[in-house]
Computed example of a mutant assay.
Amino acid sequence: MNDMRAREPGEVFGPRMTLFADMLGVGLATTLTGLPVVTIPAALSTACAVLRGAGEGQPATAGRYFAVLRRRLRAGDLVAGAAALAGALLFLADLALARAGLPGAPLFAVVAAGIGTAALVVGLRACARPESLTDWPGALRGAARDAVADVGGSALVLLAVATAALCAWMLVPLAFLVPGPLALALTAVQVRLGAMARSVPGTRGDAGGVSGSP
């Protein structure tokens, strides 16, 4: 995203500020799209695709967001959303059982938290991969490889989630906008991984790349 245009004469805000404003608009569009809950993976995946396109000179606007969403929304996206919702509910149920004082509950809670964290990282990294626009299983497989091969990127994903949650907790209205910065962080981690893969001689760069934007 370093090849953005220079500021035009008389332009008040530079391109980075324009991207920041567009990112907030995309974040609000993502929140609205994710209200049915089962559409959250598709909503976040679309946000990542739109922001990824900003590095290729394409507009990162709410209008383009809904245009991309209309082209890609399909039954597979709803299945992915339903699976994510079922996993989240199962995770919450496991934690509730752990808090009930059952034998071995502390160890069970630690294991459940570890599995939940790993699933969250893989799911979010899958949303940032271009394959998520058409192939969720492929995106999840690639994200699982990324999570293992790029531990630093996975830590950045968790940091982005923690920051988004903290911002939403400190100021509730920000909860409607945080999907934008979160999607930008996920996209940046994926772009970083692609750049690292290309810089290593002899690698194929299987990181989803920065291309493939709709």
Score class of each variant (00 low, 15 high):
Met23Arg: 01
Asp150Glu: 05
Asp22Ala: 01
Ala183Cys: 12
Asp146Arg: 10
Val172Ser: 14
Leu107Met: 14
Gln58Gly: 02
Ala105Glu: 01
Ala75Ser: 12
Ser211Gln: 09
Ser213Ala: 12
Pro137Gly: 11
Ala113Met: 03
Ala105Val: 00
Ala105Gly: 04
Leu85Asp: 00
Thr61Asp: 00
Arg70Ser: 06
Leu90Arg: 07
Asn2Trp: 11
Gly63Asp: 01
Leu140Gln: 12
Pro106Ala: 01
Arg70Ile: 04
Pro9Thr: 05
Ala96His: 13
Pro173Asp: 08
Pro103Asn: 02
Phe108Tyr: 07
Arg99Pro: 02
Ala162Met: 12
Arg64Met: 00
Ala86Trp: 14
Asp77Ile: 10
Leu28His: 04
Phe13Arg: 09
Ala80Gly: 05
Arg70Ala: 12
Asp146Glu: 06
Gly104Cys: 00
Ala105Leu: 04
Ala128Thr: 02
Arg70Trp: 04
Ala144Arg: 10
Arg72Gln: 13
Gly208Trp: 07
Ala207Asn: 04
Ala29Thr: 03
Asn2Phe: 13
Cys48Leu: 00
Met4Pro: 03
Leu90Tyr: 05
Val37His: 13
Arg129Ala: 11
Arg72Lys: 13
Ala86Met: 15
Leu90Phe: 06
Leu102Met: 05
Gly138Leu: 11
Ala162Cys: 11
Ile40Gln: 09
Val38Ser: 04
Pro181Phe: 13
Leu159His: 01
Asp150Met: 05
Val191Met: 06
Ala80Leu: 11
Asp206Tyr: 09
